[in-house]
Design a protein around this nucleic acid. Structure first.
Lengths: 228, 228
DNA sequence: TTCTAAGTTTAGCCTCGGCTAAATATACCC
DNA sequence: GGGTATATTTAGCCGAGGCTAAACTTAGAA
């Protein structure tokens, strides 16, 4: 059994790769709340274990073996989030921290029973795809709400789940998974984005709007432009 | 937050105290699958933290603070066992190992939601009482099936849950919580105990019979002699 | 009472996964 | 193309929680 620390490193390497393309020591250090030196140490170890390839001073990439483990942890995390929310009644902003702890500890048995109880879902409550047992994942790249021109219509497809306060903020304003939004206008000088959700209008700071990922829709349409 | 290791020590100290009265280094070492020297080290640390009192070469006892933590972990463990069995459909013999890992990781939130989902139960699937949130526990001391004279009638009130194989064995023979049993006869020379469960008779080795705790009943009675 | 076996503690070591400080590599600016 | 800022790695350290071997207590038998 791999330690929770190693599992965490692999998971974060995977996520940083998805989000930034390139995986650097300092990015990992920040995401793991650990010093850069500690990251270098661990990376060296992971490289010996053939879980990552490391080009010193350049970057680190997961080997297929490393990615498999990362996806397994990711699957645990996202199934847990969904289970906590749907079955146990957790609120949207509470699930992340609990899942973060449990993901390293549950058995395959537990994973399978959760998945079954949820009807083998493919997306977690924040819109992230759930990897399958055999380590496959289908990612859809969505644009950010903050990048939408005014007048756009869209559907919320994913929300960054790293900050519980932000999640609460968004939830209160109806910006949850599959919610329809319209960009009314955008204030200049990186000011807030004014969006309509249902019949309400909200002024979202750029930082917040960057955390909401959307799929564009036709203005009056009932369904997204490119429904899956 | 206390480490999982410390939580485990406190839990095992509590259990050994219940089961054997006296808590020795070697008993702890065996139960924790750790060397005696390691136990001595950790006990020293726990004593500094005021969680146990240690009389060197004699014994160790929990302080009220230590007992509080032990009972909290015990509560986690037993709620988890029940939740895994009742809600998630685990079998009787699978729940212990999973609970053993999860008990150190779940939040108060999780604990409370499990308890609510189960209707705030007072006994786990193996018959152990579940401590309350405020660290109270009501223990009933039951005799062992292995100590019953032939002809006795009894109800299973608790089963030792440390060995999954043994649990499976007992479950297959109907020796589950609240099952009625009758001791048909006892073979001499520490031979098997012959018991009737439902309409079947089974020959139980002494080692197995020692792990089943029972409450005596009147021979034909529908209810135990001293119902709770 | 003394001697010995069993149980306990001490001493010293190990691995894991952190840390800081110092050395080194890269990259960017002029 | 050289110099400096920034990123990365190396070196050396620490605490947690294990281990073994050796020393020390205790208790029981002779």
């Amino acid at each position: 059994m791999l330690s929770a620390a190693i599992q965490d490193y692999l998971k974060v390497i995977y996520k940083v790769h998805r989000e930034a393309g390139k995986v650097t020591t300092s990015a990992l250090a920040e995401r793991l709340s650990v010093s850069s030196a500690s990251v270098t140490n661990m990376i060296k170890k992971l490289a010996e274990m053939r879980l990552v390839k490391h080009t010193p001073y350049k970057q680190v990439v997961l080997t297929p073996a490393g990615e498999k483990i990362a996806l397994e942890i990711l699957r645990h995390h996202r199934l847990l989030e969904l289970y906590l929310a749907e079955v146990m009644g957790y609120s949207w902003d509470q699930v992340h921290d609990e899942a973060e702890k449990l993901e390293h500890v549950i058995s395959e048995e537990f994973e399978e029973r959760m998945s079954a109880a949820l009807g083998h879902p493919s997306v977690d409550p924040h819109g992230h795809p759930i990897p399958s047992t055999d380590g496959k994942i289908t990612t859809t790249d969505h644009g950010r709400l903050s990048d939408l021109p005014s007048g756009s219509h869209a559907v919320v497809r994913r929300v960054d789940d790293r900050d519980a306060d932000c999640l609460r903020y968004l939830e209160q304003r109806g910006l949850v998974l599959n919610a329809r939004v319209e960009v009314i206008r955008r204030e200049p000088f990186n000011g807030p984005v004014v969006v309509k959700v249902g019949s309400d209008e909200h002024h979202l700071g750029l930082e917040v709007a960057r955390r909401v990922f959307v799929e564009k829709t036709a203005p009056g349409a009932g369904e997204p432009v490119s429904a899956s």
